[in-house]
Amino acid sequence: MHGMINRALQGFLTTTYGDAVWAEVRSQAGLPFADFEAMLDYPDALTMACFQAACHVLYKHPNALLEDIGTWLVTDAHLEPLRRLMRFSGPSFLDFLLSLEEMGERGRLAVPDLDMPRIEVDRIDPSSFRIRAQWTLPGIAPILMGCLRAMADDYGALAVLRLDGVEAGGECLHVQLLDAAYSQGRSFDLGRVRA
């Protein structure tokens, strides 16, 4: 698994729960080094070992932890560049939802060898969507749910999301968009000059 993904797992654990928890996870997972490096690759087994150790150390259900990771990816102040990249997907949450299928290409534009999930979006009715996602590791739907929930908030949209089971070839998510302009949301200045 790409170092970026592993680094995200580590970053989530250290910023949310502190270095001591990460140290415990590392030791339980038998990680042979102190830190993941974002630009290197690691065996999937290491990623899974760390994740399972994290569930164990934190007494968390895997889905709950995955959802928290998804939310953290959008909301953590250090990951503002990532939030910005996501906001490039569209001017509204609806546009964002409808462009989720492009997320793989978008991710690979930024990091060519990144393992991105394959996502399909079906509009069931004008305000309901069914999202099917496939990834190299299990658990993409709860990550996506946390991420989408945070993005809805970011855009100021009111949406209800729930996991919708696992289908052949994909994990499923159901999204109901209740109000696209429910609140102000967070600002996104397209041309903000980067530091």
Partner: peptide, 21 residues
Amino acid sequence: TVELLYLHEANASTTALSRHL
């Protein structure tokens, strides 16, 4: 243009990561 901007920002971020490494 928007995709160019996206790429512009993404590059800046990944370059920073590479430099860090």
